[in-house]
């Protein structure tokens, strides 16, 4: 066990830790999380998130499907899937309208990967879930409401 590493891990928040690592020269500032779309994940409202993703105002499409339970007993683990029959899908994102930050996850799909992704998300309360799909450079969206009887954010 590397005790120094343990101490570093215990000593506070992620931001402070990153700062320390940066100061120690282990990672250079700007390298960490460089690829992660911070603006999109920090955005609170749906509109801001869509803007940060460069999606503007996507059109509703019947060719995008959101799957999930109608009622989720436990908001901490809500199975959600996005599928689309649209061609050339390059990006899929899952947004939860009433969570503190709307964007839950985004996926970049290279050619050959099907527009069919399943994961599990947390939901703070009953909310609409949006599936955002980028096909041929255009954004499309579908919605499903999931009722949550027990929230997954906060105690």
């Amino acid at each position: 066990m590397n005790n120094q590493r343990r101490t570093v891990l215990k000593s506070g928040s992620g931001a402070a830790l990153l700062g320390m690592l940066a100061a120690a020269g282990i990672i250079t500032p700007g390298m960490a999380l460089a690829d992660w779309n911070k603006a999109a994940f920090d955005a609170k409202s749906m509109a801001d998130t869509l803007k940060a993703l460069g999606a503007g105002s996507p059109a509703d499409s019947k060719d995008v499907q959101v799957t999930g339970p109608d009622i989720a007993e436990n908001g901490a683990v809500v199975p959600v899937g996005v599928a689309s029959s649209l061609l050339n899908v390059t990006m899929v994102a899952i947004l939860i309208e009433k969570n503190p930050n709307a964007l839950a996850a985004s996926f970049v799909l290279p050619e050959g990967t099907e527009a069919n992704v399943q994961t599990r998300v947390k939901m703070g309360q009953t909310s609409n879930i949006y599936a955002l799909v980028k096909s041929d450079g255009k954004f499309f969206m579908a919605t499903k409401e999931i009722k949550v009887t027990l929230g997954g954010c906060g105690g």
């Binding site: 779309n37 901490a76 839950a104 799909l109 290279p110 992704v117 994961t119 947390k122 939901m123």
Partner: peptide
């Protein structure tokens, strides 16, 4: 070959599960 690259926010569940399909 990269078949999926994803970005997660904190609202992905604890012990994340992910399923996807690719051709080939």
């Amino acid at each position: 070959k990269v078949v999926l690259s994803s970005e997660f926010g904190p609202s992905v569940s604890k012990n994340p599960y992910l399923a996807f399909k690719f051709k080939g």
